[in-house]
């Protein structure tokens, strides 16, 4: 299980890195979303994946998962949404101001071909 979890995290991260290196803003947004998945998930599994019970201290439960990484990641998920939203707004603004969706503001390969 540890192996496929690690592979999954690596896959998300690698795909995210590939996408943030693409020339257009939309790909960068996609890439950052994938990287956010990867990192959030990596922090989450830092609490280990062998616990059987959610961190709800109800009567008759035990073996709780580590609540601390979960609390950290919960806000991180919401904030990464905020960041994505900001990035999308920035991308649209740049499109409006420069007329291209290339992130370095110069028209070139990767643009929509008319």
């Amino acid at each position: 299980m540890e192996t496929i979890v690690s592979l999954g995290v690596g896959l998300l991260m690698g795909a995210g890195a590939w996408l943030v290196l693409r020339p257009t803003s939309f790909s960068v947004v996609l890439g950052l979303t994938l990287m956010a998945y990867a990192i959030n998930f990596l922090i989450f599994v830092a609490g280990r994946i062998d616990r059987t019970s959610p961190p709800l201290t109800l009567k008759g439960t035990s073996g709780w998962a580590d609540p601390l990484p979960q609390a950290l990641v919960l806000t991180a998920i919401v904030i990464s949404f905020g960041m994505t939203a900001y990035l999308v707004a920035l991308a649209l603004r740049a499109l409006g101001d420069t007329g291209t969706d290339r992130i370095d503001g110069r028209a070139g390969d990767g643009d929509e071909r008319p």
Binding site: S6, V9, G10, M13, G14, A17, W18, A46, I49
Partner: peptide, 17 residues
């Protein structure tokens, strides 16, 4: 570069787990 980063992250995760 992306392959390196993905591989590195996977290795890090595996080492941790």
């Amino acid at each position: 570069l992306a392959a390196g980063i993905g591989g590195g992250t996977a290795a890090l995760s595996y080492a941790m787990l």
